[in-house]
Amino acid sequence: MLIEDDISISEMITDYLTREGFIVVPAFNGEEGICKFLKDSFDLIILDIMMPKLDGMEVMRIVREKSLIPILIISAKDSDVDKVIGLGLGADDYISKPFSMIEILARIKAAIRRATTYSNDNKKEETNVIKIHDLIINSNNFSVIKNGKSIQLTAKEFDILKLFVTNPNKVFTKAQIYNFVWKDDYFGDENVINVHISRLREKIEDIPSQPKYIKTLWGIGYRLGDI
């Protein structure tokens, strides 16, 4: 589904993706998008931020209460704050206007591929349970427990955490994290990695500003802390 109030942009994206074999359902404001989302099933949502009736952030909040469907934000608001807010509410990726159709197609395919891979992995039986200090990471049911309390992680937050705990002696650059977790080429947008690492720390660290699980190596990347 494409939720975009600019008719010319909506038609351009719809026409291009249709030629690429996608079925695109357009909506021209947030309320219409939510109505269609509740009535049908979709593989991905392309979502503009600045829209009438319901803006993109509110649409995303409502969608995330019901579904983990991939959400790709497109917006002319290209500030770090907007990216942090958007990704923090559950967006999977962010593209700034103006954008090329080749780029948006690549990101759509990558988002759907990641969602499909995670869904298939979620069905596999794994017995691997890792305990690090006061964290228990269970790959069988994708759960994380800290001091006996369940922590709700997104799919990517879990994959990032699992990447570190299964490679305790390895340092990962941002490009490597993106390649392993997103399973796609790194576009060089550090905000995607920064936001996910920050939100993961908020959930698993006692003091997020003084992390003990995921350490930053300035100018290099991240590694699991010496716990």
Rank of each mutant, 00 (worst) to 15 (best):
M1R: 10
I3V: 14
E4I: 05
D5A: 03
I9Q: 10
I9A: 10
I9V: 12
S10R: 01
D15L: 14
L17K: 03
V24A: 06
P26K: 06
F28T: 11
N29Q: 09
I34A: 01
F37D: 02
L38F: 03
L38V: 00
D43E: 13
L44Q: 01
I45N: 05
L47K: 10
I49N: 10
M50L: 13
P52Y: 08
L54M: 15
L54F: 10
D55E: 05
D55N: 12
G56A: 01
M57A: 00
R64S: 01
K66L: 14
L68V: 12
P70Q: 01
I71P: 13
L72F: 06
I73T: 09
I73M: 12
I73P: 11
S75L: 06
D78S: 08
S79M: 11
I85W: 14
G86I: 10
L89I: 11
A91W: 01
D93F: 06
F99A: 07
I102F: 00
A110V: 04
A110M: 08
R113Q: 15
R113Y: 12
A115F: 03
T116Y: 03
Y118V: 06
K123M: 12
K123Q: 08
K123I: 08
K124L: 15
E125Q: 14
E126T: 10
E126F: 10
T127V: 12
T127P: 04
D134M: 02
D134R: 04
I136K: 11
I136N: 05
N138D: 14
S139R: 15
F142C: 01
F142T: 05
F142W: 07
V144C: 05
I145T: 14
G148C: 04
K149E: 15
A155G: 04
K156R: 13
K156I: 09
D159F: 02
L163A: 02
L163N: 04
F164T: 01
V165Y: 04
P168T: 02
V171H: 07
F172I: 09
Y178Q: 11
N179R: 13
D185V: 13
Y186F: 14
Y186L: 08
G188A: 08
G188W: 09
N191D: 00
V192P: 00
V192K: 03
I193D: 05
I193H: 00
N194Y: 07
N194D: 15
V195R: 00
S198R: 15
E202S: 07
K203P: 08
I204R: 02
I207H: 09
P208E: 05
P208S: 10
S209P: 03
S209Q: 09
K212I: 12
K212G: 05
K215Q: 09
K215I: 15
T216H: 03
L217T: 10
W218A: 14
G219C: 02
G219P: 04
Y222C: 06
R223I: 12
R223G: 00
L224F: 04
L224D: 03
